[in-house]
């Protein structure tokens, strides 16, 4: 069970962001504890990706506060987010297709030799190590990632987040493009990371999967938070009702 008595790892307090008059995120408050997976659900355009991009530094919030370990955090760009050990796996995977796996894994954080030149051999060796743990079948170390399958690309993206000791992990539909076997691989990785005490925000459309992988689910509609529920206390239908109707299930509504 997740211990929610201490300070939350992340607290998004009263976050708002608008794009030209449209309130994409409207006063949303969500928190995340160590070793917990919080699912973010909602229709396309409900604002879940936008909310999470404020945390990953891709967007700047208009109002609200981000607290990390109880301290106020200033996140204005992806570099700031990395400083707080926040790693993001984007739906688009954010890989440079023309570079190989190790160049992508270390992108923005290359290992350099004492003379300041990038140390490709060292980076490839590290990549081989971590891929051996995450996806032992991975072989294409010298091909550009455009030559990889969806699952292989996903494992490069995950390896990038895991390698740098993320404390907070954001996954935007990590299994959307994957087959059953690869989805299983991602589920196992999430379990493993949870045990290590990471906090994970998981954006997903698949209610069944959220029930399986997450501890709590936060449902959004039209930029507003419908509610946060513990997945053990609700049925899949309850969650679906929250997504579609935008109402909390009656037995939980106080």
């Amino acid at each position: 069970m997740v211990d929610r008595s201490g300070t939350p790892l992340v607290e998004l307090r009263d976050i708002s962001i608008a794009f030209g008059g449209i309130k994409a995120v409207d006063h949303v408050t969500v928190d995340l504890f160590p070793g917990e997976v919080v699912g973010l659900l909602g229709h396309n355009g409900a604002g879940k990706s936008t909310l999470i991009k404020c945390l990953s530094g891709a967007y700047r919030k208009d109002a609200g506060e981000i607290m990390i370990n109880g301290q106020k955090a200033e996140i204005n760009n992806p570099r700031d987010a990395r400083k707080y050990n926040i790693e993001t796996i984007y739906q688009t995977l954010a890989l440079a297709d023309n570079l190989d796996a190790s160049a992508n894994l270390f992108l923005g954080r290359e290992l350099v030799s004492p003379l300041g030149f990038v140390d490709d051999a060292q980076m490839e060796a590290e990549t081989r190590k971590i891929m051996g743990r995450l996806n032992p079948n991975f072989r294409k170390f010298s091909d550009p990632v455009s030559a990889l399958s969806g699952g292989q690309r996903q494992s490069v993206a995950i390896a990038r987040a895991v390698y740098f000791n993320a404390k907070i992990l954001i996954m935007d539909e990590p299994t959307a493009a994957l087959g059953p076997q690869e989805t299983q691989m991602v589920a196992e990785i999430i379990d493993e990371l949870k045990r290590q005490g990471l906090g994970i925000f998981l954006i997903d459309h698949d209610v069944h999967q959220v029930k399986e992988l997450c501890d709590r689910a936060a449902v959004m509609k039209n930029g507003q938070l419908v509610g946060i529920v513990k997945v053990d206390e609700v049925s899949e239908d309850d969650i679906l009702a929250m997504i579609i109707a935008g109402k909390k299930p009656e037995h939980l509504a106080a």
């Binding site: 688009t92 023309n98 992108l107 990038v118």
Partner: peptide, 25 residues
């Protein structure tokens, strides 16, 4: 081939969004 600058140039050319999200200015 051997500097970060070069790596970032090619990464940005390959996928500008990915480069930006990887913290490259």
């Amino acid at each position: 081939r051997k500097t970060r600058l070069g790596r970032y140039i090619f990464a940005t050319g390959g996928n500008p969004d990915a480069a930006e999200l990887s913290g490259i200015n």
